[in-house]
């Protein structure tokens, strides 16, 4: 009799412990407030959200994880959307914001109503919200650091920039220039704007190539590597090491070159699946875990050995993607605590 009671108690305790581990947030609702869905990156972001949150809801980790996108990418529209989400009783709002500042009023109101706000990609400056930011500057610097390992003797670099006047372009370029300043064996001999577009990048590179000495490597921002390769080929010049940006056409070209002549490079960008990272961070906060307010998105880097695997997972015309798990989120949080 006593033995049986004890066994029951153990079983109950085990059950309790098991449910405790995953289900503290089982009655919490999380919403995604997204300002724009008009390009392939954002579409992939929404698909990733669905792919990760649907099983999470079915497994009872959270009660709901609904995506909402505003139609017109307008600040006032998104502010109203956030207020409606608060009224609908969501416990957390994962936010890709239309403006870094102009949503602060609505975000503060949500915080005051006890709602957790986690912003990512398009982050907000309101102190009560969490931020999962992209360190674009580090991304630019990482490119030069890779080149340093690859060609210690240095050489001439051609820089392809993004859209002039955009914050992201400035940051990546700053990182590249900082990396070059620390490694004087490299020298940027030319710089063009490719607008993150293969055709524009090809035209821009073709225009500047005749005036340039021999180029050892091309540092890029993504969406421009394939165009650069085509320009070098058309000019009949040897193909330099071109850093890629995770686009499908870039990875495909790289694979062809690798199979033909053992071409080596690397590719780096932000995975649209970062929305799922924000989801897990929101879940952790709702679970009562201690999460620092400022987190950094890990880059999705593709190297020589995992090229085939990433290319297989990337759809035609798309961007290499990865969905994050709760463990990945924990790692990001731990890194921020250090």
């Amino acid at each position: 009799m006593l033995k049986r009671t004890f066994a029951c108690a153990v079983a109950a305790a085990a059950l309790f412990a098991a449910s405790h581990a995953i289900a503290d947030t089982k009655d919490k609702k999380i919403a995604l407030s997204n300002n724009y869905a008009g390009n392939s990156w954002r579409q992939a972001m929404l698909r990733s959200w669905d792919k990760v949150t649907k099983p999470a809801v079915e497994a009872g980790i959270v009660a709901a994880a609904d995506p909402f996108t505003t139609a017109e990418n307008q600040v006032t529209e998104q502010a109203a959307q956030i207020q409606n989400l608060v009224l609908q009783g969501y416990n957390a709002i994962v936010l890709n914001a239309a403006s870094p500042d102009a949503l602060n009023g609505a975000v503060k109101e949500a915080c005051d109503a006890g709602v957790v706000v986690v912003s990512f990609d398009g982050i907000v400056t309101e102190p009560c919200a969490w931020r999962i930011a992209v360190d674009f500057k580090q991304m630019g610097k990482d490119e030069v650091l890779y080149l340093k390992d690859k060609m210690p003797q240095g050489g001439n670099l051609l820089e392809i920039r993004g859209l002039a006047g955009v914050f992201v372009d400035d940051e990546i370029s700053k990182g590249i220039h900082e990396g070059v300043a620390e490694n004087p064996q490299f020298k940027i001999v030319g710089s063009v704007h490719g607008d993150w577009d293969q055709a524009k990048a090809q035209a821009a590179v073709a225009g500047i190539l005749p005036s340039l000495p021999e180029i050892a490597a091309v540092v890029t921002q993504g969406g421009d590597g394939y165009g650069a390769a085509q320009a070098f080929k058309a000019a009949g010049r040897p193909t330099p090491l071109i850093i890629m940006g995770n686009r499908e056409d870039e990875l495909k070209w790289w694979k062809e070159q690798k199979d033909a002549n053992g071409y080596e490079t690397m590719s780096v960008s932000i995975a649209p699946g970062v929305s799922t990272l924000a989801f897990w961070v929101a879940q952790m906060i709702l679970d009562g875990k201690d999460v620092p307010k400022d987190l950094v998105v890990p880059f999705l880097r593709i190297d020589q050995d995992n090229l085939e695997q990433n290319l297989a997972n990337t759809e035609a015309g798309g961007v290499a993607n990865v969905e994050y798990t709760a463990e990945d989120a924990q790692k990001v949080v731990d890194a921020a605590k250090k």
Binding site: Q74, V75, E77, D101, A102
Partner: peptide, 16 residues
């Protein structure tokens, strides 16, 4: 009234 609510500005904030 709008800036009082949003607390921060953007040129095309009231386009609609």
């Amino acid at each position: 009234a709008l800036i009082g609510l949003t607390t921060s500005a953007q040129a095309n904030v009231a386009e609609r």
